[in-house]
Write a protein that binds this DNA or RNA. Structure first.
Lengths: 207, 207, 207, 207
DNA sequence: ACAGTCGGGACACCCCGTTTGT
DNA sequence: ACAAACGGGGTGTCCCGACTGT
């Protein structure tokens, strides 16, 4: 299964081309930002002409939106990898954290959510809205796991699911950012260790 | 006192103009990124013509570097506000966190460190290096506070100063980013609460 | 027949436009020099917009090179006009000189070879090289005629073909230059007379 | 003795500066042409600021005119070198030709007369006029020598002084141009030989 | 008076995202 | 899907006037 949005069967040649454009564009936008990505560069990357690109997208902004959906879908999938065969909320969260730290999304350039959110936080309301919604859904995903863990007494009952999800996401994304700036992945490891210990604390009954 | 880098006395008219350009540019770059900021927009913001701007900077990149120094200087100062009159490492850290959550730096558009780091993480090596160095010094600042707290037994001796600093920065910057994307400041409050509790734990003697 | 380089059949609309640009540019470059010719002026002359011009040339320098090829091709053709139906080396040379003196090349502004050579003799190595090669081929053309004349005893055997070609070209180009500066064509006539007498001398057997 | 136009005694510091500017400018204009020479480059070459230059000249065009006068004065002096101690019209002409071929004027970049004349032959009427007048005077100089040679029977009486001067100048300037384009000085030598033989012919009585 | 700073507009070349014919 | 053209905007540089301190 692909990322939901994308096609599965009956893909014509045009759809295939569109998908190829999206994949190349996703990488470019994720690495260079919206303004930093030019259609000329995309032409070279795809081997198409401008007209060939504009057949599939009415504007650069729409292309960027589709590219974001693809990139974020890929990133989300990578982060959820293996969760469906993991039992228990705490192990699932730990797995998710490990995925975040270790697995590189198929789209290089860092977390599409952060990149797009920051890149478009002035102007470009379409992208901004997509990033907002993606973040919201992503948090809900964590909340769902945490709530399930609380239901079956795996996680302390005085936990606030929303708050825990927020802390996990903040720490991870912040660590990813530090890693990118500093050029090392030390921050990711440190935060992983910290979060794992935090989860262990939550697993213990309240004192 | 200004941010150290900037002038105080003997400012000729030209220096004054240069400073005005930097301040406007810092805001623009912080909000729109490097590629998204055009000199034309800066012309309008400053009321100067191209020639008037290019007298003071040889290129957009140099201007961006100066603007970053200014913006980051302002942000750091805001985050360290009041720390010199606060006694104790733990109160200092809490004050720093509160500053981060509550005080808006004089340069709108989010944390210059994050913005610049992510914006320039491909290409633009000059900015990238400045962001890297700024992050490094910022972390060292926290490490210094933490180490001092451990020396006078205020903080548990089994704490790793580097790791704690990394966790604090990651969480805060990640929370800021979530706030920007979601449009609320809920994430900042949550992470503040979380970090304060963490610090309280570290203040207790090891069990 | 056009100037060899240019197209004759299968010209698409784009090629036609490109040719139009080249022709206008050739005149501008020949009259105003490389630095003195602006793209804006070319826009006006061609009726195209910036984008329409830059589709066909990646840079001003490339355009200048194409324009030189065109202008020189036209000039050379004008100078060789009628030579193919002229019998004998001496008459051919006289015809060539007359062409030089009387026929205006289709590209106004003087001899493209001289203009380009002098205009680009510092910097602009591409143009400089084209001018150098053009001059070399031009001289060879004269040498070929002279050598043929010597072979069939039309020209004295103690003639140095290279030297004679050099003298002819120097005198003609120098005269053209004097004409341009002084605003009259007296110099051209004088040099024509001089060269014709020189050729007559060479036609006579050595004393 | 300097070139007449320039100062000899009572030069204040300002005049000295002005002269320094002129010398640098003369070289730049001679090498790069009017449009290709920027005041910024001249600032760097002279070590002065814009204001420092514009104190002495009201515009770039006036500066170019003064620079031309200087460059041409220097070139003319070089070409006339030693003529005052040479006896006889034919030896004087040969000396002049030799000077042209061998002596490099103190201002690099080729013959200022040709450069300026061609560079300014559209637009820039001031420069154009100066070049025209300089060429006229230069030819008169040769005519004077030739006429004197005819008066004392050194040169054949059926010679047209104007025509001979035109031929000499055309050949020499044309040869200089060929040398510059081809990068060798072969053309200059060839034309020198040719002109010397021509002068020898004129020295013999008419047959 | 005069060297030098500062700023002003205009324009350079180049490239952008977009639309159109086909 | 492409080739062509369109406008407009990008950064950078130009030449020059006006102001500033000496």
């Amino acid at each position: 299964m692909k990322f939901g949005i994308q096609f599965e069967a009956g893909m014509s040649k045009g759809d295939d081309t569109k998908q190829r454009i999206i994949e190349k564009a996703a990488e470019m936008f994720n690495k260079k930002g919206y303004e930093g990505s030019s259609l000329s560069a995309l032409m070279e990357a795809t081997g198409l002409q401008k007209g060939g690109i504009y057949r599939h997208f009415t504007s650069k902004e729409e292309l960027a939106a589709d590219a974001f959906d693809y990139a974020w879908g890929a990133a989300r999938e990578a982060r959820l990898y293996g969760l469906d065969v993991t039992a228990g909320a705490i192990p699932q969260l730990k797995q998710l954290i490990a995925n975040f730290v270790d697995r590189r999304g198929p789209v290089p350039g860092g977390c599409p959510l952060v990149n797009t959110g920051i890149d478009s936080d002035d102007g470009n309301p379409i992208l901004r809205e997509r990033a907002r919604k993606a973040l919201c859904e992503w948090k809900e995903r964590l909340v769902t796991i945490i709530t399930a863990g609380m239901k079956n007494a795996e996680i302390r009952s005085d936990t606030e699911p929303e708050d825990l999800a927020t802390v996990v996401i903040s720490s991870l994304e912040g660590a990813l950012m530090m890693s990118r700036i500093s050029g090392t992945n030390a921050a990711r490891r440190v935060v992983q260790k910290h979060l794992n210990r935090l989860l262990d604390d939550l697993a213990r009954p309240a004192a």
